[in-house]
Simulated assay, not measured.
Amino acid sequence: MTNIENQPKGELNLSSLPSHQKHISTVVTVNHSGKRCSNLQVREQQKSSVKSSELFDNSVYIEEICDVMCIALAELPAVLNVLDIVETLLYVKHGPEIICWVVANTPDCFREVCINLIANGERQEDDNVGGKTRMQAISMLCQMNPSQALPIRAKCVEMCRMPALAITLSLEHATRTLGGDTEGDMVAFISGLLLGNDQQVRNWFAMFVRNSQKAKLGIYSALQQRKWESHTSLQLCRDELLRRLQTIILFSMDSQLPESCVVEASALLRLYCALRGIAGIK
């Protein structure tokens, strides 16, 4: 391996690298000047689509790409910043997968990377490719480290950003605990957002619910619209709440609710009232 520590700061000797690894260097050396992108710049870039690349579009090279990036980050910590690299990877194909490889190789940066991704996200999700890719990357990181899923969700609420991600992480947590003593904290979590004392959080989540219900008139046909709605985080949340309601009904005999279900049914009813009255869900 070529010793790159002796190279001038901010430069890499590419003469000994294969041609495809030279291509990787164009991504690795992004922002090598040490200047961090502002949140405004990042959000402007989110509107752009995934950049086409012969190297990054081919999954065969993913392992080598990850190796080169991990070596570069380890050897040039003063030149390359993992947060800038992660932001750049959002705009190439297989970006979330490569981000997971990079973070797995440097686990100490897990929380910092996730918080930075959230901070550069939108207050309300939109349909641009960058926003969806960002949410996918964070979700995959939390699947890789499930114990950090709820703390990352709490960061979404604290920063009032990426509400769809908060719902997605709650649903994934419910799936992991399905069949156990508890089935996640979906009902308590959403109730806390809408009925808590923080007016900013309440308005933020209520706006997300309203925006998620808006029809995309003039963009989608009726069939395409129904297909789009079925994949939104809000619709998945509806399905989960409906599943819990159906479970309670199954335990009810002769229109009487068993005592073991009273607390859960009351919490569910309170949440439905909050969603209807505060968030205007239909």
Rank of each mutant, 00 (worst) to 15 (best):
T2F: 06
N6H: 11
Q7F: 13
K9A: 10
G10H: 12
G10Q: 12
L12R: 03
L12I: 15
L12Q: 02
N13T: 10
S15G: 14
L17S: 09
L17W: 09
P18K: 10
H20Y: 14
Q21N: 07
K22L: 13
K22E: 15
H23F: 02
V30N: 00
V30A: 00
L40V: 08
Q45C: 12
S49Y: 08
K51F: 06
K51P: 01
E54M: 04
E54C: 03
F56R: 11
D57L: 06
Y61W: 15
E64S: 14
I65W: 02
I65L: 06
V68G: 00
M69F: 13
I71A: 01
A72I: 03
A72C: 15
A72D: 12
A74G: 12
L76W: 02
P77E: 00
A78W: 01
V79K: 02
L80R: 14
V82S: 03
V82K: 02
I99L: 05
V102C: 13
V103H: 08
V103W: 03
V103D: 05
N105I: 05
D108R: 11
V113E: 00
V113P: 00
C114Q: 07
I115Y: 13
I115L: 13
N116T: 07
G121I: 01
D127F: 04
K132M: 09
T133H: 01
R134L: 15
R134D: 02
R134P: 01
R134F: 01
I138P: 02
I138Y: 03
M140N: 07
L141E: 07
A149K: 13
L150S: 13
A154P: 00
C156I: 08
E158M: 12
M159P: 01
L165E: 11
I167F: 00
T168Y: 02
S170F: 08
L171E: 06
T177H: 11
T177V: 11
L178R: 15
G179D: 03
D181C: 05
E183Y: 06
A188I: 14
F189T: 13
I190N: 05
S191R: 15
S191W: 08
S191K: 13
L193V: 01
L194K: 06
G196E: 10
G196I: 06
D198F: 02
Q200C: 03
W204A: 11
A206P: 05
V209A: 10
R210Y: 04
Q213R: 11
A215P: 00
A215I: 05
A222S: 10
A222H: 08
K227D: 14
E229N: 09
E229L: 12
S230Q: 08
H231I: 00
S233A: 15
C237S: 06
R238I: 01
E240F: 14
R244G: 07
R244K: 15
Q246F: 08
L250F: 08
L250K: 12
S252M: 14
Q256C: 11
E259K: 13
V263Y: 10
S266V: 00
R270K: 09
A274P: 03
L275Y: 04
R276E: 10
R276N: 12
A279L: 04
I281C: 06
